[in-house]
Amino acid sequence: NNDALSPAIRRLLAEWNLDASAIKGTGVGGRLTREDVEKHLAKA
């Protein structure tokens, strides 16, 4: 759900053309954090 994404995370996902549903969020309530996105990018 994009409503739970911060503007910074939305921008990062758009910049790298990533799908938020493909990344497991570790923040409060399962929210994506910058670290989650960076770890996903490191694996790719």
Rank of each mutant, 00 (worst) to 15 (best):
H40E: 07
A20R: 05
H40I: 08
T26F: 03
V37T: 01
I9T: 04
K24G: 05
D19V: 08
A44H: 14
L18K: 02
L12D: 01
L41D: 02
T33Y: 03
L32P: 04
K43W: 12
D36Q: 00
G25S: 05
A14W: 11
R34I: 15
A14N: 09
T33W: 01
L41V: 11
G25P: 10
G27I: 02
N17I: 03
A4H: 14
L41Y: 09
L5V: 09
A20E: 07
I9N: 00
L5T: 06
N17F: 06
K43L: 15
P7D: 15
S21L: 08
G27Q: 02
K39D: 09
A4K: 12
K24A: 11
T26S: 09
E15I: 14
D36S: 01
E38T: 07
L12H: 02
L41A: 07
K39A: 15
D36W: 03
E38S: 06
S21P: 05
D3V: 10
V28C: 06
N1S: 12
K39N: 14
D36M: 02
G27D: 04
E38H: 09
D3G: 10
P7G: 08
L12Q: 04
V28E: 13
N17L: 06
A4Y: 14
A14D: 12
A44I: 15
P7L: 11
S21W: 07
T33H: 00
D3A: 11
R34P: 08
I23S: 01
G27F: 03
I23F: 04
H40P: 00
L12E: 02
G29P: 03
A42W: 08
V28M: 09
L13N: 00
L41F: 07
N2D: 14
K43S: 14
V37F: 03
S6Q: 05
V37A: 02
L5S: 04
S21K: 12
L18A: 04
A4M: 13
L13K: 01
L12F: 06
A44N: 12
D3S: 11
A42C: 07
H40Q: 05
L18S: 01
G30L: 02
E15K: 15
L18Q: 03
R31T: 13
S21M: 10
H40K: 03
A22T: 11
A42L: 13
G29F: 06
T26D: 02
R10W: 07
A20M: 06
V28N: 09
K43I: 14
N1R: 04
A4S: 11
E35G: 08
R10I: 15
A20I: 08
T33F: 01
E38G: 04
D19Q: 07
R11N: 15
L32I: 15
N17A: 08
R31W: 05
K24L: 12
I23P: 00
D3I: 11
D19L: 09
N1A: 13
E38V: 12
R34H: 10
I9W: 04
L32W: 03
D19T: 09
R34E: 11
N17G: 15
R10M: 13
L32G: 01
D19E: 13
L5Q: 08
A14Q: 11
R31I: 11
V37R: 00
P7R: 08
L18R: 01
N1G: 13
T26E: 02
A8W: 09
A4E: 14
G25D: 02
E35P: 05
K24I: 14
D19A: 07
D36T: 00
I23R: 01
N1M: 13
G30Q: 04
I23Y: 01
R11P: 05
E38L: 15
L18N: 02
T33S: 04
R10T: 12
L41G: 03
L12R: 02
D36F: 01
E35N: 07
N2H: 13
G27P: 02
R11K: 15
T26I: 04
V28S: 09
N17H: 11
K24H: 10
I23L: 08
I23G: 01
G30K: 03
N1E: 13
L18T: 04
E15G: 05
I9R: 00
H40A: 12
D19Y: 05
G25Q: 03
S6N: 06
K43H: 12
A22P: 03
S21A: 13
A42Q: 14
G25T: 05
R10S: 08
L32V: 10
K39V: 07
E35V: 10
A42S: 10
A22V: 11
N2T: 13
V37G: 00
K39E: 11
G27L: 03
K24V: 14
T33C: 05
G27T: 03
I23W: 03
G25F: 03
T26N: 04
L32R: 01
K24M: 12
K39G: 09
A14V: 07
N2M: 13
E35L: 10
G25K: 05
D19F: 05
D3F: 04
K39S: 10
G30D: 04
A14S: 07
G25H: 07
R34F: 15
E15L: 15
R34Q: 11
I23N: 00
D3Y: 04
R11E: 15
L13D: 00
L32F: 04
A4V: 12
E15P: 00
L12A: 03
R10L: 15
A44Y: 15
T33I: 05
L5P: 06
K39H: 10
A8M: 07
L5R: 04
D36R: 00
A4G: 14
S6M: 05
D3L: 10
A8C: 10
E38I: 14
A20W: 07
E15M: 15
D3R: 09
D3T: 10
N17Y: 07
G29S: 06
P7H: 11
K43R: 10
D19M: 08
S6I: 06
V28P: 15
A4N: 14
H40F: 15
S6Y: 04
L12P: 03
N17E: 07
G27S: 03
R34K: 13
A8Y: 10
R11V: 14
A44G: 11
A8H: 09
G27Y: 02
A14I: 10
